[in-house]
Every structure is written in structure tokens, then in C-alpha cells.
Design a protein around this nucleic acid. Sequence first.
DNA 1: GTCAAGAGAATGTCAGGACAAATAGGCATG
DNA 2: CATGCCTATTTGTCCTGACATTCTCTTGAC
Lengths: 245, 245
Amino acid sequence: MSELFVDLDRSSPVPLYFQVARSIEAAIQSGQLAPGARLENEISLADQLGLSRPTMRRAIQQLVDKGLLVRKRGVGTQVVHGQVTRPVELTSLFDDLTRSGQAPRTEVLLHRIEPAPDEVAVTLALAPGTDVLHVRRLRYSREEPLAVLDNYLPPEFCDLSPADLALRGLYQLLRSRGVGMRVAKQRIGARRGTAEECHLLGERRGSPLLTMERTTHDDSGRAVEWGRHVYRASRYAFEVTLVDR
Amino acid sequence: MSELFVDLDRSSPVPLYFQVARSIEAAIQSGQLAPGARLENEISLADQLGLSRPTMRRAIQQLVDKGLLVRKRGVGTQVVHGQVTRPVELTSLFDDLTRSGQAPRTEVLLHRIEPAPDEVAVTLALAPGTDVLHVRRLRYSREEPLAVLDNYLPPEFCDLSPADLALRGLYQLLRSRGVGMRVAKQRIGARRGTAEECHLLGERRGSPLLTMERTTHDDSGRAVEWGRHVYRASRYAFEVTLVDR
DNA sequence: GTCAAGAGAATGTCAGGACAAATAGGCATG
DNA sequence: CATGCCTATTTGTCCTGACATTCTCTTGAC
């Protein structure tokens, strides 16, 4: 059981529990805390770092939620066995690709303001027929086509330009306009690609594709985006970590 | 903003924050708290229920994590717009089908104790060549084939009988043996089914299938199960709710 | 009439303490 | 030697209190 090196900066705007969680996570990723290793108990850890127990608990809880640690009453806290998997957070494909250094490229196939189809109007909670922005993009990674992204956005985002969408990810653009995205509900399935989809993605006709429908809500609970995406099954998969509490 | 009817039972072993969360969730599901409705502030809610603010916060946090509520600093807490979606928890296909009243049936195709293949030995953290239980099941829903489930279990579960596996879900069996499952890491993809898979599932040859690989860890961080499943894409999809914090 | 400063309100963070419940390991007893 | 009890350890729950940060709305100045 090794000592944890945690540099706490109490003047930083970054919350203490977050600083601690980040440090522990780094120790796990670096192998300093091996899979299966037991952490010291919460109270002595809190003492060592000069924190209260609730703050220490919160730091640990964050990593439990991410699937990196497990706790057992009466026993202690341990590092989960198994490979390092980067858990899926509320990010977009663009973010994921950028972070893994794959230099995504985006081609805007369609950029049109149109009356919302019924299904879209319902999920975005708009009056039927309200004008929405419909964009269709082809996303490349390493200069290979990866996905066709169909998205509908409520009226206030109708001024997003094709140039914006070609350069930055949709989530990035929304964030830069002050949208605080909090919840996304996804439905992941599969089907045979249409002739057009397969052509765009460079797959043989009738190839299996991974599909994803998503509704994203902001911090006031409003739906800010609805999308229907198809991915090349040969080059993409979703990773999900589920935690029971 | 309606009053919340919450029956608190302080003598119950069910934690107070959980009782409160359950009540609020019921109010949302029943429509008593409509989408977009604002909750009263944490302090007055806590006062009304005779609870401390941390306990009240924890109840709300649980629903925020489930994607039912959103909070915004300086503003308040609101119910998320949009349809009621049952968020995915750490459950098995069997649990899901049972809960939605679809009477799953299971056919055990294979039940064999064999040396662990390298990949399995690694993910289950066993010595190479250790004997593991390999089961292959065909899962029906409404008397239609739905999925082919391949699973590997560590040595201590080798005594699970085919009869057990035909009658109950794998997660149920593990739970009844005192295994506390906490974390599952899934990878969801798609591919064309093999001739055998399509035949078993009653699909045309080369149909697209949804694939899922999963490693489940218990509360001491040990891997207790590894599975590779294929689902009929025409009849199944995964629903996932992501929350940013 | 417009814009900026300020007050109020709500959630976010952090501390310190107390007791409950579950686990594991040692110890005594059969 | 085996079994059951007891105790120490550790996490789980709950409380009270305080201050910080962010957003909204009102008020006031220009």
C-alpha cells in the first residue's frame, strides 16, 4: 500500500474532491496502484491529506462511479481488476477522436432549415412544423469515412454555419454557445446499410452498420439536439461502463 | 409546484435518501411532476420532510444520475423533458425481459468445463489453462429466438448445472450465490452473423447482428464473468443514458 | 430607454461528529 | 479439530453548520 502523492491546491477553483480523484486516477493509470490493490481506509486517507471524511469519500465515490474502484463495507476499497478502459462520458464522436489523436475531418453533406418532422418535433418538444436546422455530415478519421451523422437542432441554433460544422464538433459548438449539456439518452442498434450509406462510407452494399439515436438535454432539461447516426461496424464500437449502487 | 407526499419510515433499513428518491421518481412517472416542472429548493424540501440538506441532496443526486432531473446552480432543479425512459442499470438480458413481462426461455446449447482460452484467462485474471465453465445459450423472448449468449465463468462456478441455467438468468444465479456484482464493462458493436448464428436465430444468412462483449466485476474488483453475445438486430437494441457531472 | 450594479435565491463545496451495519479474523468452547 | 461467538475494522448513513459561486431579477444611474 503505497503513499499517495497528492498536491492539493486550496486556492484553485477546482474542487478538492476532484483534485483528489484525479490524483488517484493517475496513480491507477500509471500502475502505481495496481489492480486489486487495497486503498487505506477513508479516515486515515482524509487525515493524511488534511481533508474531512466526506470530501475524501466524494473523491472515492467519483472513481467508483467511473468503474475504477469498488468498495465493500467492512472490508475496504480496492482497485478493479482488468485493463484500463476509458469510460464513456458525455462526449461526441468528434471529442473522442480528437482526444485519441486521430484528427477527425468533417464533410457537411446537407445544411438546411426545414419544418420539423413529427418525430423530431416531439422529441425536441417543439410545436409541429417549427423550423429546425437539419444537418447531415460525413465524419472521417485518419482520412477514412467512419460515420454518417444526421442531426436536428432547435430554432435558436439555425445560424450555425456549414463552415462551423466542418471545423468543429457539434458538442464543441454548442458548448461554445453556452449550452450546458447534461443528459444524453442513446439507443444503439444495428441494421444493413442502405445503398447510399454504404456508398458514402466505402462499404460493400448491404454491409452491417451500427446505429445510434440520441437525444441530448441541457441543464434546464430541454432537448437541444436529436441525432440519428450510422457507423461502420468494421471500424467502430461503443464502450459502456455500468455501475450498480 | 405541488406538494410531495413522502412517507418516511425511519425504522426501515431502507436509507432515507433512497426512500425520498423513490417517492420523487414515482411522482415523475405518474405525471404528478410534469416534465419541466421545477422542484422546490433543497433546503425547504429538507425542512418539509424533516431531513438534513445533505440527505435531501443525495436523494436528488440519485435522480440526476439516472437522468430524470437536472440541476442548475443559482436556478434550481427541474424534471427533464422527454419521454419516460427506463435507464439501463446493471442487469442482464434475462432480468430485462422478465421485468417487461416477456417470459424469457433459455436453451442450453453447450455446457462444458474446459481450459480457459488465452483471452478469457487474461480478462478473468486466471492462470493460463485454468479450467473454466463455458456455456452457450440460446435465449428466446415470446417464443422467438433473440440472442446467442456465450459465457465463461471462473472455476468456483463450475458446478452450475445446465438445469439451473435453463431456468434462471446468469445474473440471478450469481446473485443467489452471494456474488455482489458492481461494475460491468461492455463493448457494443455489429457484424454480419455467421451461418450458424443466423440459423440459430432464424435470420437470413449474412444478416446484421448486434454484438456485445462484457466483463463483470464483483465488489472486490474480481472479474466474475466474461461473455460474448450476439443479438438479432431486428428485435433488440441497447438503451444507455449518459450523465455529465 | 438602456445598461450596469446590487440584492436575493439557489445549488456547490467543505468541515466535523456520531452512530449503524457488515465483514473478517481471533479466541474460546465443544 | 471444528464450530460459534466476540471484537476490531471499515464503509454506510445522517446530522448541523458555514461559506462560495452562479444565476435571475430588480433597482438605479446615465
